[in-house]
Design a protein around this nucleic acid. Sequence first.
DNA 1: TTCCGGGGAA
DNA 2: TTCCCTGGAA
Length: 221
Amino acid sequence: MHDWLAKAYGPQHWWPAETAFEVVVGAYLTQNTAWAGVERSLANLRRAGGLSIDGLRALDLDKLRELIRPSGFYSRKAPALKAFIAMLDAEFQGSLDVLAATQTEVLRERLLALPGVGGETADAILLYALGHAVPVADEYLRRITERHRLITPLPRKNRKGYEALVQLTREAFGMDALADRPRLFNEFHALTVAVGKKHCSVIADCENCPLAADLPIECQD
DNA sequence: TTCCGGGGAA
DNA sequence: TTCCCTGGAA
């Protein structure tokens, strides 16, 4: 699937951001939110100097909430971002480099313990902001793999279902050979989002989908 | 299961 | 107007 998608869509250049911290902020803001809204919020933050660790720390909660309003769920995302900074200050010397030096599994559990961070956000931060080689799963991947009969239908929203998708991705790519290559997981998730937006939304649109050849026979007409 | 939510698209 | 978006938590 990765190869078909790569051939159809080309390099995705993820994650679009100037700094690692901007990736972290974007990962929070994009939760169940269209990227266009995230870009508005990021522009607001940039203008207010809030796209650096020191800058975001200096913003009071009400101001932060107002700045990220365009990307929705601001009453939850604003305190969640503050909690990330608080963790960084208290446990990692306020440094993303120190955070990134933490062992992957330990780091993942620490991120998951944060308010407003579930599996997808934790893995997006690990992969795209901190450079750890972990797969990122999401609702698109769940739909794609379910519709292509690569998984049995999973409970939609719980950790078990998410972990099953991550595990499926790991096995598909071959964990050992790729342990030192975040690049493939990076590209695959980006491609998943691309094909998901075009063809595998709530309503499946399989015509001209790069993955159409892999559809189960009963779905082809 | 339901809520959080603005904003773009249908 | 309604639907949906690179989810998470009560």
